[in-house]
Write a protein that binds this DNA or RNA. Structure first.
Lengths: 214, 214
DNA sequence: GTCTATAATAGGATAGAC
DNA sequence: GTCTATCCTATTATAGAC
């Protein structure tokens, strides 16, 4: 009854090894996307870079799109984590919103291939699976919560928490990422010709939804 | 001395026919990009759709990237024209700026494949030639002129005409186009989940650079 | 879990006949 | 300016030995 997948001695090591190999595949895939463009990923190139033969990759991912799907999920989780960690270190309300959003943008600018996969649709035949899309919805919800928090603290007009407000914020974020990655790639977040204007972008959002009291 | 390329009788017709064929190639290429994604263009597919053999295409374009280059140039010209025509129909200053920008965004949302080629970098090995990039600079200059006009009329703070102001506006435009094409493609400009917020986006820019007098 | 071998396709691009 | 034929390369994916 004791299969190789059960909790037999050595099974954990084997699973760890397998997970490490999958992680290395994804790491190299992201490197290749950075070099060739997000749509230019090929299993052969991954295998070459790893020093193995292409068929071996199928023991870890069932298809090329499965690799994209895993990268998409990983990217969404990392983006969502950046939002959360950025917001955690700041006082609730507007500061948390702006810190979270800034951290998210920084992550995106520092991870071009994954960010392109999240914000654009650069791969012809690929659409994320429902499982991989779940963290995407979580990130959207997280931003919505931060906006709601800022409204609740009286730092923003309640209209900021409407569809219009959330979508306007999404437009601003996507704009920074898009312009930075398309027109000034490889520059650090703080110096990026577009990402350096993140504070101005946040200011625009603030001015658009001033609190009722002010 | 009279070569077939000179102004001999019939030469014009021949040139027109040739230009028409090139235009049809580009039209079909744009259709395929819409269906397969901007990076998914193949000469074979174009030839199939036209009912000719792939090698025949090389009489019109010297390579696959030459097709992309022509599409890029065509897109930039059309985008720039949309800006100009939109601005022309409005009073000078802020109205001209907002009308021009809105017309440009409308064009982008209505021409997804070309807009992706202009705003993103979806094709691995392709970078626009200097000739094709010239209209891009023209479009940028046109927006700068519109901003300067609004400042000159006293409708915007002079800071709007700085690098920061122009880059912020670029971020806003790229954000609308990106979000609309990536997350709600195929919807008309006025109803698009993101493009419908164009007036709000322009308002944010206005509020960010209020005129000194106000 | 790795390999070799191979299928099945497709792609871009060129040479040369007509 | 169109075709056929072809080159060369590359891809994803599967079958089966070890």
């Amino acid at each position: 009854m004791a299969s190789t997948h059960a909790a037999a001695p050595g099974g954990d090591r084997r699973r760890q090894r397998r997970a490490a190999t999958k992680a290395e595949i994804l790491r190299i895939a992201a490197e290749l996307m950075a070099a060739e463009g997000a749509g230019g990923l090929s299993l052969s190139a991954i295998a070459r870079r790893m020093g193995i033969q292409p068929p071996s990759l199928y023991k870890y991912f069932s298809s090329r799109n499965a690799v994209y799907d895993a990268l998409f999920a990983e990217g969404q989780r990392a983006f969502s984590a950046a939002l959360r960690e950025g917001a955690e270190g700041a006082p609730p309300g507007l500061p948390a919103l702006e810190a979270g959003v800034t951290a998210g943008l920084r992550w995106a600018v520092e991870h071009p291939p994954l960010a392109q996969l999240l914000f654009w649709r650069p791969v012809p035949g690929f659409t994320p699976s429902a499982e991989s899309y779940a963290p995407a919805l979580e990130a959207v919800g997280r931003i919505a919560d931060l906006v709601a928090g800022a409204v609740h603290e009286g730092h923003l007009h309640p209209d900021a928490a409407t569809d219009e407000g959330r979508e306007l914020l999404g437009v601003l974020l996507a704009g920074v990422v898009t312009q930075q990655l398309a027109n000034d790639p490889g520059t650090a977040f703080a110096e990026g010709r577009f990402s350096r204007h993140t504070p101005a972008v946040l200011r625009a959002f603030r001015l658009h939804y001033p609190p009722p009291a002010a």
